[in-house]
Write a protein that binds this DNA or RNA. Structure first.
Lengths: 217, 217
DNA sequence: ACCTGAACACCGTTCAAGT
DNA sequence: ACCTGAACACCGTTCAAGT
């Protein structure tokens, strides 16, 4: 893996702030720390994530991290924030690329579970201690909210199209989110016994959820 | 709190086993360890659970635990097993005391979420690392399965009564479990913003899930 | 059989000191 | 400003030794 390119010599001077992001040991150590944390979590699991190992792997003292994060929890919050951003982009893409209707909605559900299954440890960090992390990080709160709003918007669009019941959108969205989240958790935990079993539940769940919120009685 | 009563002097001799449970420091140290772990988890959270503190609180060496559990993970598995047993009893009670029909099923859903909300840390241990724990503990696997079977049985009964679609019961049960589990997680995480908000989602979800699996089109 | 105390190999975090 | 090394106060677990 090639070393990251050095920070550009000429920096945009933001009015009022001097040298907002100078030359770190790694160009952008904060970025590198989050990336390395994600990588470790993905391969070794959350439990195996130690600040010392991260520092060592980046060729940096084990306390260098404290220049960019107040503590380990804050680093995990950053990982979580990035996770919600990735998730939101995946949901939006699925919704828009499938015509913002019934197929788009089903694609969204699929994208959600797929994200969880392909980023299991990441997903676990996102929902493991959400309240505590969100309370300490406005960024995380904002990003999680944005992801949720994608779902709300999709439901409102379908309500207007007459294919979904006109219930309170936020309430309806929480219900759908909870159900899909539960399926994602079961899938991650391997409680669905193999891929084809997981696919079967996924298909069944989408069919049942569609019926649950369908406009026509 | 009164100290536990000393172990009875005369023990039933199980054929083939000699002194199956002799006189521990605490009569039944294993039991005391699980209870203390549950208490700590409930009041301080899972993260704050240390074997040293448990030993100290029981007036026992910090390594005494290893006579009864292979490691910390095993202790947590025991906590988890007990949690599933309590959950199963609550589900069964709700189902049976409300007439094993539609009201019974709704009472079950309520009992499930109530268990999760009133035992949040306990619930987190149960589902936090389920696969790993279940793989190492046959007891846990059995107890979790038993709880799941309560739901399957309730669905089969309703299928026979003609009020629920005749889908594959295990698949249907996984769907319902996933949805309720998701709601429980949101409720625990406080993402429902207060009790009345949580109650509203709960009521809405039960109504929608009933529709999702209803027999009549 | 059951329990102990000392020891081992780890942690996250703090802080004075370097450049 | 950013980074370091030593130190602090913790962990879970092992193991020889006690009764």
């Amino acid at each position: 893996m090639a070393p990251p390119a050095p920070a550009p010599r000429r920096l945009q001077r933001t009015a009022g702030r001097r040298k907002p992001a100078g030359h770190y040991h790694h160009g952008d150590l904060r970025r590198a720390l989050v990336d390395e944390a994600v990588k470790t979590i993905r391969t070794r699991g959350v439990d195996q994530l130690t600040l010392r190992a991260i520092g060592e792997r980046l060729g940096v003292s084990r306390t260098a991290l404290y220049r960019h994060f107040s503590d380990k929890q804050a680093l995990l919050a950053a990982v979580s924030t990035e996770g919600f951003r990735t998730l939101r982009l995946a949901l939006t893409a699925a919704w828009e690329e499938h015509g913002r209707g019934r197929p788009g909605f089903e694609a969204m559900a699929g994208a959600y579970v797929r994200f969880a299954v392909t980023h299991p440890a990441h997903y676990q960090v996102m929902f493991g201690r959400f309240v505590e992390s969100a309370a300490a990080s406005a960024d995380l709160q904002r990003e999680a909210r944005a992801a949720f709003d994608v779902l709300v918007d999709a439901l409102v669009a379908q309500q207007k199209a007459g294919i979904v019941r006109r219930d309170e959108p936020a309430l309806q969205a929480r219900f759908i989110w909870a159900a899909v989240h539960g399926i994602a958790m079961l899938a991650i935990d391997g409680q669905l016994g193999g891929d084809e079993h997981g696919e079967a539940l996924n298909a069944y769940a989408i069919e049942r959820l569609r019926r649950a919120i369908a406009a026509t009685p």
